[in-house]
């Protein structure tokens, strides 16, 4: 019996290693075609793609780690009862409080998904968690400061981004709460990979002595590790998609689609979604569009891009039901679009 399992393991390992070697050989072949017009992937393209892909990962992973870490701390130190106690009874006050959390909790959008998921598991109402997730990456001192710099001191851009982002997040949180009602947005725990993930932290948390600091630290580390695994894979897939699009679809092509008030807003929102830039960096990119696009569509880029993008969508779909993710993205898009159009009509 034991022998068989070991044999099984060895077999699996061999298959695994073999597949790696085969892929390496395949890549070597592709690379050796460099400069050859007959190969459809050029070395330049492959190198460029790799750099863009890895740079998105390197840029985002520290923040995902922070998110995973905070989420582990919440898991271990914050009890459901405590959360139930501090959540305001009034829906409206709760939403406003959630939207302002960014000031005391400055994380960008890469870190927010694991935290938000943990909060929902701990019993935070959905509308508050969603508002929190959408507002924190926008209303956050670091992001607002980088926006200020990028737009070289045009303070109204910071106000537009901050205030409209807040309003948008509150509206979306409220709507999503109403739409989803009491149904859980989370995937069924039993189907979730989490359980087959053999990090063993459930085991530890039962065993550990509450006062034992060392075991708590180990607990947090292992938790962070498993959280990184869960979120990291979706981050990587998101980065891969984004890098693919950036390398092979020309930006000027996307931009050439629209110049009207409506179409430019849509184009900028699509661009924000595709580029998957960190909310701390996107203002510097948005700045390069000043003069080519309306202020409204640039605000749309700044708000929508921080709320949702490819990598966030994938990270969300890792732990939430697909139907919920679609509803959420649809609501975010519609609300952001309306805000964008309002800015366009009022005119700045």
């Amino acid at each position: 019996m034991i022998l068989r399992t070991i044999k099984n393991k060895v077999e699996n390992l061999i298959i695994f290693l073999l597949s790696i070697i085969i892929t390496i050989i395949l890549f070597k072949i592709i690379i050796s075609f460099k400069g050859n017009a007959s190969s459809f992937i050029q070395k330049d393209d492959l190198e460029g793609f790799t750099i863009v892909f890895l740079s998105i990962i390197f840029e985002a992973i520290p923040f995902v780690m922070i998110g995973a870490f905070v989420s582990s701390i919440i898991q271990i130190f914050v009890s459901e009862q405590f959360i139930a106690k501090i959540i305001p009874k009034s829906r409206f006050i709760g939403l406003i409080a959630a939207s302002l959390m960014g000031f005391i909790f400055p994380v960008c959008e890469c870190a927010i998904v694991p935290i938000m998921r943990r909060l929902i598991k701990k019993g935070v109402p959905l509308h508050i968690a969603v508002t929190f997730m959408l507002a924190v990456p926008i209303v956050n001192p670091v992001v607002l400061a980088s926006t200020y710099y990028a737009f070289s001191g045009q303070a109204y851009m910071v106000f537009l981004r901050g205030i409209l982002g807040l309003i948008g997040a509150i509206i979306i949180g409220h709507l999503i709460g109403k739409i989803q009602n009491k149904k859980t947005p989370l995937k069924h725990e039993t189907n979730h990979e989490h359980h087959s993930c053999s990090c063993g932290y459930h085991y530890h948390s039962q065993q550990s002595n509450r006062r034992d600091i060392v075991s708590k630290i180990i607990n947090i580390i292992q938790h962070t590790s498993s959280e990184l695994y869960n979120v990291g894979k979706f981050l990587i897939i998101g980065a891969l998609l984004s890098a693919l699009m950036q390398t092979f679809i020309s930006r000027s092509y996307i931009l050439s689609i629209g110049h009207g008030i409506v179409s430019s807003s849509i184009v900028m929102m699509i661009l924000a979604f595709v580029l998957s830039l960190c909310s701390e960096a996107d203002a510097f990119i948005a700045r390069t569009f000043v003069g080519q696009f309306t202020t409204g569509s640039i605000v749309g880029f700044l708000i929508f891009g921080s709320m949702i993008d490819i990598k966030n969508t994938l990270m969300l779909s890792g732990s939430f039901k697909l139907k919920f993710v679609i509803k959420l993205i649809a609501t975010i898009s519609i609300v952001c679009f309306i805000i964008t159009m309002m800015v366009n009509i009022v005119g700045f």
Binding site: D44, L46, G48, I57
Partner: peptide
Amino acid sequence: IVFIVPLFLAFVVNPNNLSGKVVSNKG
């Protein structure tokens, strides 16, 4: 596999430069 893909690209392709042609896609 998902985690191995970037590592794999990193070690095998081991990129040395980002060519202007690729970037020009972005403006």
